[in-house]
């Protein structure tokens, strides 16, 4: 399964002047929780492929897959966030992200939406979140009754995965 990647055009000056800045997010669900990340870090979304194991890797690194000739690591997002690991399931999807030159796949249960939200609708993170989440949360978005946690992908994947 491959979902076509939406491409976000840079904000046009005409838009930003009159209306509040719109931001686009990829919304997904893993371990029953809803998250979203900035669409600008998302390269593509693809179906699950069984990764090959990596030796001496942290537990949240499931292994590596071949993405059109490039070898990219696959990270179990739930596990990385300090939740338990998600079950290995062919219905899981991989969100391919790019931080700078570095490409990483995030395995999540399902991608649910691509959402445009005015920047003013992003709420600050309340104190009650757990420490693991707070370090990587950039805000909260309430959308159609669901609470979406806005993740900072660079903070999650910015450092080298390999020890």
């Amino acid at each position: 399964m491959t979902i076509a990647t939406a491409v976000l055009q840079p904000d046009s000056p005409a838009l930003t002047a009159a209306t509040p800045e719109l931001r686009e997010f990829v919304v997904f669900r893993t371990l029953g929780q809803d998250f979203c990340i900035d669409i600008l870090c998302v390269r593509e979304i693809r179906g699950w492929t069984k990764p090959s194991n990596l030796p001496h890797a942290p537990a949240f690194v499931e292994g590596v897959i071949n993405l059109r000739g490039a070898i990219i690591p696959i990270v179990d997002l739930a596990n990385r966030l300090g939740l338990t690991a998600i079950d290995e399931d062919e219905r899981n999807v991989i969100i391919v992200t790019a931080i700078g030159e570095r490409v990483t796949g995030l395995v999540v249960e399902t991608v649910t939406d691509i959402l445009s939200v005015p920047a003013t609708d992003i709420q600050p993170v309340p104190d009650l979140s757990s420490d693991e989440l707070r370090a990587v949360l950039r805000g909260l978005v309430v959308h159609q009754g669901r609470l979406l946690r806005l993740l900072d992908i660079a903070a999650i994947l910015g450092t080298e995965l390999a020890a």
Partner: peptide, 14 residues
């Protein structure tokens, strides 16, 4: 030969 270091890092023995 594909680099592991581009997107991941060096693994001893690999």
């Amino acid at each position: 030969i594909k680099s592991l270091e581009d997107n991941y890092g060096h693994i001893p023995g690999i």
